[in-house]
Design a protein around this nucleic acid. Structure first.
Lengths: 226, 226
DNA sequence: GACTGTGAATACCTTCACAGCA
DNA sequence: TGCTGTGAAGGTATTCACAGTC
């Protein structure tokens, strides 16, 4: 008999491995964003080509169909997709139904910028606690939230019921912050510090490496000049 | 992230080197960063395993060798790599030899944070012009640079000799900014606005989609709960 | 005819295994 | 023995081609 499942790489130790590719998620989010705009304009159906056009053809319509097809039977052949159920299903898959409570650690310009940015666009993301270690910053208010001393992380994060941490501290301090966050039982970190976070627990980590992004630009620019 | 996947005529790369994979560049940058730290500690040689350890084993040593091997004959079998020439070659490939002059468009929290962050770590990146459209911000100074009205982009960017633009304006304004930048002849954009930029010229674009990154976290968190 | 859904083909990336060299 | 360099294998993501449906 033929073995139906030779799959599964020795990846992180998660119970149910995701059936959905990591790279497709940001695309799904982009679809969601574009479709809500279409919704707001009163549109009720759309084709994969139409959606590609909304996205400036940065994603091929074939790719869009593949992605959406993986979420279930959402389209009608010959017709296109009904937008409402599509948006709903995307929100479900992306986990946008919950309200997420974010702890921001490090409230310099970056932490500040992130807080402002993420709450401006997405109602589902709520900043629930803010920490810094500078006396000049501790005690400040941002949208009614008082910036706490990082020493308070354990009590405050627990009390505020945070489930996502954003690390926006200098590289030297990031690892220690991450460990405390992990010990608290949080399972997701967005890390702006240009250093890898090493944790024993199975934490979901996304690194945003601004200097790394710049290096892609400079690399390709210098190729152009050659 | 959701970059157009620059098919682009590969003739642009020409004699320089074989097409270096897009994904490898941030890794090369991470090597560069780690190796400079090792340099600062007085180390002069390192093995691929040693470098992997410096990176917290987030990258396999095999991968490191593959990446470095693509840059030329840099290691000595049985010995390891001499750090100095390695750092030098990495800097060359990444385009870190030039001084890059950055124009920041949109000087809200995000633009401000980016300016501070990128100049703090990397001497090669210099902020050369800053723009905003808010009267409250125009005229402010940041490290000696006066924030200009966005209406001044054409004159100022040219005069300042900028070669990279960072777009940190609201989504609605991003496309127009990008077009003006492209018309000015700049060839690289780092875009924080959550909208695809559509340009006729072959511009190198990197999108940083903060909400998209968050959606990856929420997606995987909701899988864990299931 | 128009559009979705999907196996097959392709391109790309990473890991493995080991040859080559100090 | 220890380590780099590299072809081959294994996986994953994207594109193609077309069958299926309205």
């Amino acid at each position: 008999m033929i073995d139906p499942k030779p799959k599964l790489a020795p990846r992180a130790l998660e119970a149910a491995a995701e059936p959905l590719g990591e790279v497709s998620i940001p695309r799904l989010y982009a679809y969601h964003r574009a479709l809500r705009q279409a919704q707001a304009k009163g549109k009720t159906t759309i084709t994969s080509h139409g959606l590609a056009a909304l996205l400036g053809h940065t994603i091929a319509s074939t790719q869009i169909r593949k992605d959406l097809c993986a979420l279930g039977p959402l389209g009608r052949r010959g017709q296109g997709y009904a937008i409402d159920p599509l948006v709903e299903q995307l929100a479900r898959v992306l986990g946008l139904e919950h309200d997420w409570r974010i702890a921001i650690i490090g409230f310099g310009y970056l932490g500040h910028a992130f807080a402002t940015f993420i709450t401006a666009r997405e109602m589902r993301f709520r900043v629930a606690a803010i920490f810094d270690n500078s006396p000049a910053v501790i005690g400040q208010r941002w949208q009614g939230i008082v910036v706490q001393d990082v020493a308070q992380i354990e009590q405050t994060v627990r009390a505020a019921g945070c489930n996502i941490a954003v690390i926006a501290v200098p590289a030297e301090a990031a690892q220690a912050c991450a460990e405390r966050i992990a010990d608290l039982g949080l399972r997701a970190i967005l890390n702006f510090a240009p250093t890898p976070l090493l944790l024993r627990e199975p934490i979901i980590i996304r690194n945003i490496d601004l200097a790394g992004e710049m290096s892609i630009l400079t690399h390709r620019l210098s190729l152009l000049e050659a």
